[in-house]
Simulated scan of single mutants.
Amino acid sequence: MPSSTVAGMGPAAPVFRPPGGLSPAPTPVRPADVSDDGRVGRVEEASHRGVSDESPFRPAPRPIPESDLAENDMTDAYVSRETEDPPLAQEAKRAVEILNPSGEITMPRPPKRRILCVANQKGGVGKTTTAVNLAVALALHGNRVLVIDLDPQGNASTGLNVPHHSGVPDIYQCLIDGVPLDAVTQAVEGIPTLWAVPATIDLAGAEIELVSVVARESRLQRAIRASEGEYDYIFIDCPPSLGLLTVNALVATDEVLIPIQCEYYALEGVRALTENIEMIRSHLNPVLEVTTVLLTMYDRRTRLADLVEQDVRAHFGAKCLNAVIPRNVRVSEAPSYSQSVMTYDPGSRGAVSYFEAAQEIALRGAQRTQPGAQRTQSGGNG
């Protein structure tokens, strides 16, 4: 192929010419393809194919008949009527269902009072969060609920916005001084059927002081039996240990609710807890039973959470609730406002998950009806 020579420059590079002697048309660069610094950016796919918007070889678009336009408009209108509500509307609907301002939505009340000890010797697995939010969910839907804060940190009292500073009558006085439970019970503001027994820093010394007290393992049980309050549910929030406070809670209840974080260390804590439950059942409380297991802090993005869920469900079977509590920022934010997530952000995923868990607990409690069982007063329950 011949090559041209430029004066003073030597032979120039060969130029490819297609058959027919026509040189290829340069690809036009539109203003949208030029960056601020003058460099040519990436052109559109049509330009890469050598066909620009101004090219005479681009076929003209086929005009759409008016009949088709009318049909498409009708189709879009029909689809818009059939689609679901937008996300904000769905969230608002869930919030109304959870807050239940009209009181129309109710969860079944148990045939007799249920006392659930929320326990796990592993810290940070969601014991307090679970006790508070389940109690609020049940109370908002037709149940009378009492929360006993047995943790010296007093986090359950904070979550329910119940005063628990030093000098406030609390559960410590019931355990050590024998003060009636009703005398230290406080109503929770904004929820008429929810009460709480707070815990102050004084409770931190109860572990040592209970050592020399007569019948030290059953002090809480006797206080609950002597109460005249009528409750459908009593939730006992235990400290993250297996000391005398947790032993008192396990002796005072028939049911244990175990929140399990979806991580490996949480499984080790459950093994130690189940061993202690067996020991207490053998020596102090023969009717004690693990009835409910709730998976918390579930992160669907990790494979580990899925494996832990499979192990827990394989071990506990039907005792595991179908509802799983996900990791949710709203659940963590709510205590800083002295609220449960049910009232702080009722439309959030965390609130919906705890609401579903409370529904399961209520339905299972209604199904545990014994022949001839009737609702009894709090004073006659143990």
Rank of each mutant, 00 (worst) to 15 (best):
D68G: 01
L116H: 11
N322G: 15
A373E: 15
I224G: 04
T291W: 01
E189C: 00
R375K: 12
C238D: 02
N72H: 10
A183S: 14
L175K: 00
V15W: 00
P335S: 02
P163H: 05
A252C: 08
L304T: 11
S80Q: 12
D33C: 02
L203D: 03
V79T: 08
S332V: 08
L244T: 10
Y264A: 15
S348Q: 13
V188N: 04
P180I: 05
L295R: 11
V329I: 15
A318R: 15
L242A: 02
L245A: 05
A223K: 06
P19F: 11
S212D: 14
P63D: 08
D202K: 12
G38P: 10
Q153R: 09
D149R: 08
D254H: 12
A196T: 02
G126E: 07
E104M: 00
S166K: 12
S332R: 08
A305L: 03
A334S: 14
S353E: 01
E82N: 11
L194H: 05
N248W: 07
A226E: 13
V125H: 07
V34M: 10
S227E: 06
A226C: 01
C174D: 02
I361E: 05
I234K: 02
A46G: 10
R271W: 05
G123H: 11
V287F: 02
D149Y: 10
S340A: 13
I361G: 02
T274C: 13
I98C: 09
A362F: 08
G103C: 01
P335W: 02
